[in-house]
């Protein structure tokens, strides 16, 4: 492995100062993406600046809205006693990340900042319309997650910024959600995945949020499908239409995990299956 220096700053300011001072340095959170990329020679940083010793970055606070520190591990999302009720979709997605060993160190911030089109937490947080709080030496700013992902591996963060927190608003009681992920085996990155959230009023869908993973350069909201569903009584015929629209509105590639055609197919089927699961129509 190529050599690099390793720093453990004790505050955000110290981390940001170090980043400014050391050319070609990177922030490291749990390292489950970064250490693999360095080992594979994709990245050759001169130094890693660890965010693990910075206080307050790894706490979850639920107080009306939900604040999740960027350094919260995937395991801590799963075991938080309140999150399951307040943001079930995020917990469902967290359960599908990697293996126990990966979940024990992988962080929510790393999942977002790595900007992989298959990132499971990114998908659920998109659907939950999360906001990202970003800090630099010159101040703080909040960015809706939909503006966060720019291209594979590239977020809207500039090199001198740290993602510190994620904010979500709790969902209303008539909201239901599902997270569906297709991997080759249980522990695998998604071949394709779908996160779906519906707010229902009787038969009528008041609000629909749909996102798909591994089918575009970034985790993708399927807004056409959302518009199709909102304000409508949800029927199996409408679900068929949503299936077709989902397949058509994504732009997947073929790679070792699956072909373009297969990914389109899965996303369509998962949108329909998600609707069926939420509405209790039995298996599709």
């Amino acid at each position: 492995m190529k050599r690099f220096d390793y720093f453990l700053p004790q505050s955000l300011e110290e981390a940001l100062e170090l980043k400014k001072k050391i050319p070609n340095s990177r922030f490291i959170a749990g390292g489950t993406d970064l250490m693999v990329q360095i080992r594979g020679g994709e990245l050759k940083p001169s130094a890693l600046i660890s965010l693990r010793s910075i206080p307050d970055l790894s706490s979850i606070e639920i107080n009306g809205s939900i604040r999740i520190g960027a350094m919260t591990t995937v395991t801590d999302l799963i075991y938080n006693p309140d999150l399951e009720h307040q943001a079930k979709l995020l917990v469902d997605a967290a359960r599908r990340v990697g293996s126990p060993q990966i979940r024990n160190v992988a962080t929510v911030g790393g999942n977002l900042c790595n900007c992989s089109p298959c990132a499971d937490l990114a998908l659920s947080l998109l659907v939950l319309e999360a906001k990202a709080r970003i800090q630099s030496l010159s101040g703080t700013q909040d960015v809706p997650l939909q503006k966060f992902f720019e291209s594979p591996g590239k977020s809207c963060l500039s090199p001198d910024q740290i993602l510190t927190d994620i904010f979500i608003e709790p969902v209303s009681s008539n909201t239901k959600s599902v997270f569906l992920k297709k991997g080759r085996v249980k522990m695998d990155l998604a071949v394709a995945s779908v996160a779906l959230l519906l707010e229902m009023e009787g038969e009528i869908c008041r609000k629909a949020r749909v996102a798909a993973g591994s089918v575009a350069p970034v985790p993708l909201r399927l807004q056409k499908v959302e518009v199709l569903l909102e304000g409508q009584a949800l029927s199996p015929e409408l679900a068929d239409l949503a299936q077709r629209m989902a397949s058509e509105s994504v732009a997947p590639i073929s790679d070792i995990r699956g072909t373009e055609e297969y990914r389109r197919q899965i996303v369509g089927v998962y949108v329909k299956r998600g609707l069926a699961q939420i509405l209790g129509w039995g298996l599709v």
């Binding site: 390793y6 453990l8 490291i28 390292g31 489950t32 250490m35 693999v36 890693l48 660890s50 693990r52 395991t75 126990p100 060993q101 990966i102 024990n104 160190v105």
Partner: peptide, 13 residues
């Protein structure tokens, strides 16, 4: 108390 992959864990942590 938690299982981790020691191949991904920076020594200094």
């Amino acid at each position: 108390g938690r299982a981790v992959n020691s191949c991904l864990y920076p020594a200094l942590e």
